[in-house]
Amino acid sequence: MATALPIVAILVFAVLGVTYKLSDKFNCDQRYVNLFMFLSAWTVMLAWGLFTGRMDLAWRAVALGATMGSGVYLSVMIFRKACTLGRISTSWTVINLALVVPVAASILIWGEKPDPRHWLGIGLTVVAVLLLGVDIGRAGE
């Protein structure tokens, strides 16, 4: 289960990444695409929550969800604006490099302790993001 979940997440997030490419290709109106995206996700999660009986009210969950929802919206809008002002490869790389924030929080706030092999893996992920960012930039030139 613990191994399967990240694989599922990677596959479905890859589909999400492809929809960004498709919306570009088909010249979609991003405002509508985002609205349909949030509404369909909301519908599915509500149905799943009701079906599994896990929708009992918890105010901390509501507060966290509202904070994350505002963050998702702002993140999407800021990314779109950044893409109009600068190179998409730079914006894309910076967005992906944000993975160091939760990694740092996991280590510094929640006291998780990576071993040397995991540190190497984290470092290589950052290197991979930077190299792929350079490649996208070169392809766009």
Binding site: R31, N34, L35, F38, L39, A41, W42, M45, L46, W48, G49, T52, R54, M55, D56, L57, A58, R60, A61, V62, L64, G65, A66, M68, G69, S70, V72, Y73, V76
Partner: peptide, 20 residues
């Protein structure tokens, strides 16, 4: 809040949709 993942995501997507 592991038991409340569905609620967190319902509120998250709802807030994002409203802001759109």
């Amino acid at each position: 809040l592991s038991r409340h993942i569905a609620l967190v995501l319902v509120v998250q997507y709802g807030v994002s949709a409203i802001l759109c």
